[in-house]
């Protein structure tokens, strides 16, 4: 009986949001006035540069009641078409990318368009470094670092699972979750035989590693592969 109560309650709000005139645009500032002022004082003959704020899509304000859906923004860079020939990279993130990129059967299929994928969902489970973290609408504002693992998106009765290599998740108080990942692949696109092979390879590398750097590299490879393995079996 009360199943549709939330939608009914939400409707007038939505209608109010839809009815907008050009005059009552949100008063979101597009530039930092303090900065512009200082700029004009020092360099009066040059326009101040834009700042990212000018290109930012405005975020909704925190609603007073908890909304029924969680908005998930999923951001990815345009990740490379596998350019793993380079050497000399040291950021841990990169190791994870490469470890992952090797596993994709078809690199073109990689879910790496880098766009903002925004969906309204019921729940997401985020692989934070402290453990799996379920996020529902109205979650407390959180910053979480991601580890290689499964990101599952629950909407209605569908569950979509992605393997993410690493990144950050910001959960805002207005029931918007931003997930920035370096790479994400739908789990069903991962080839399990390649995962096994990679796992063996990196285990071997760890055993034969002599320097700390090599050890760390191999360890990261193992971490990613075992996470993938767990994702596939689980």
């Amino acid at each position: 009986m009360f199943r549709r109560a939330t939608t009914l309650l939400g409707r007038p709000l939505l209608a109010a949001r839809a009815r907008r005139f050009s005059t009552d645009l949100p008063a979101a500032p597009t530039a930092d006035s303090q900065f512009v002022e200082a700029w004009n004082k020092v360099v009066p003959n040059l326009d101040p540069p834009r700042t990212p704020l000018a290109f930012m899509t405005p975020r909704p304000a925190t609603p007073s009641s908890i909304p029924s859906k969680l908005t998930v923004n999923f951001m990815l860079p345009y990740s490379s078409e596998k350019s793993g020939k380079e050497v000399g990279f040291e950021i841990e993130l990169l190791r994870r990318i490469f470890a992952l990129a090797d596993l994709l059967e078809d690199k073109e299929k990689a879910w790496n368009r880098g766009l903002i994928f925004s969906f309204d969902v019921d729940m997401v489970i985020i692989p934070a470094t402290t453990g799996q973290m379920g996020v529902l609408p109205g979650h407390v504002a959180t910053i979480a670092e991601l580890k290689p693992g499964i990101l599952s998106v629950h909407s209605e009765n569908e569950v979509t699972k992605y393997f993410v290599s690493s990144g950050f998740a910001f959960i805002h108080a207005n029931s918007v979750a931003d997930i920035v990942a370096v790479e994400a692949v739908p789990v069903d696109q991962i080839d399990s035989s390649l995962v096994q092979k990679g796992l063996q390879e990196f285990t071997q590398k760890l055993n034969s590693a002599t320097t700390d750097l090599e050890k760390a590299e191999a360890q990261i490879g193992i971490d990613v592969h075992s996470a993938l393995n767990a994702a596939l079996s689980g």
């Binding site: 345009y78 880098g114 910001f170 920035v180």
Partner: peptide
Amino acid sequence: TRAENSRGLWQPFIALLGDTPS
């Protein structure tokens, strides 16, 4: 296309940390 696709990447950081040119 690549540049446009990468435009989403910085937005969460601005949403979280704000824009502080001054």
